[in-house]
Amino acid sequence: MNPPNPINLIQERYGIRAFDPERWNETLTALLSHRSVRAYLPDPLPPHTLETLVAAAQSAATSSNLQTWSVVAIADPTRKDTLAQLAGNQAHIRQCPLFLVWLTDLARLHQLASQRGLPAEGLDYLEMFLTATVDAALAAQNATVAAKSLGLGTVYIGGMRNHPEQVAETLQLPPHLFAVFGLCVGYPDPAKPAAIKPRLPQAAVLHHETYNIAQQEGAIAQYNEIMQQFYQSQQMNVTGDWVEHSLKRVATGQALSGRDRLKEILQRLGFPLR
């Protein structure tokens, strides 16, 4: 099989021929060919695949080397079914052979401070929760790229935040731990291929020297047209354009699928967020 053409990958990522790169490599191919996979074969993963993905995750940057994240690997069908229901009944969680739940983990430092009789007041502040969340995201993205390089597919599951307390109970999480998102991992089902979804034009997200919100207007109008074509090509029944679809997701607190209560739930899970 011939390797993907860089120009074609960029055109798929933006829905248009955006630019012609002068330099290219396998890493860029892996990154630009990312797609969310929601249909998996039942095939088990080779031995030590999980450990390899975690090694890749641990190779990501981490603030001050605090390493304030952890991951729970789920293979048990019953537990995957429970998590699938909590995440809005997403069938691909049940289907994938491996489901990873990525955690902000301040429990480790709390425990170490207690063992040594040392203060850890800083862990109660919003800054440390944000640091741990960023750490978890960086680690998970490394694992996702590693999975792609091994011929595996993935999809992130933000639905872990729909019912955080029930997820914590299912995973037996002590205080100071929070499931940020899940990640399905497995071999993509070739009978149900996933497409590369176009992203916003760079004019909407790339700013030079200072931020200029006015420059995005034309780019977003163009993107609305690109996404309409994408929805049609994928036979997706999406009402309205990308802007309308996106604004519906943030129109009210209720539109957040239960996550509008996240601050109070986090506090009950042991995060004061001072």
Rank of each mutant, 00 (worst) to 15 (best):
R268P: 00
T239D: 15
I213D: 14
D43R: 14
Y231K: 04
V185G: 09
W102K: 02
V134S: 10
H208K: 13
N212D: 11
R94L: 13
L171E: 00
R259Q: 12
P190I: 02
D105I: 05
R261H: 09
D124E: 14
V54W: 11
G182Q: 02
D20M: 06
H34A: 12
P174D: 01
R274K: 15
A143M: 08
K248W: 11
I265K: 04
F181I: 03
L256T: 08
I74F: 06
A146I: 02
D43A: 12
M227R: 08
P119Y: 08
Y14H: 01
N142D: 07
I74C: 03
L32S: 04
Q215C: 12
H207W: 00
N8F: 10
T154Y: 02
S233W: 03
N2K: 13
T104F: 00
Q67W: 04
E12K: 10
Y40W: 01
N212I: 00
S64W: 01
L32I: 06
S149C: 14
R199T: 03
A30V: 09
L109A: 10
T239V: 14
Q115P: 01
E264F: 09
V72W: 03
S36D: 11
R116K: 15
A139V: 04
V101Q: 01
Q235R: 13
I196H: 11
G151K: 12
A84N: 10
L273I: 05
E51H: 10
M160S: 06
E217V: 07
A113S: 12
A84H: 01
I226R: 04
N224V: 15
L262I: 13
S149Q: 15
S64D: 05
V185F: 07
A61K: 00
V250C: 03
S149E: 13
R38S: 12
N142P: 01
R116Y: 13
P174A: 06
V167C: 01
L183A: 03
T82E: 12
R116M: 14
Q11F: 02
V72P: 05
L266I: 00
I74W: 02
Q172M: 04
Q234S: 05
T68F: 02
A39L: 02
K192M: 15
L66D: 05
D135W: 04
L100E: 10
A107W: 06
L53D: 00
R38M: 10
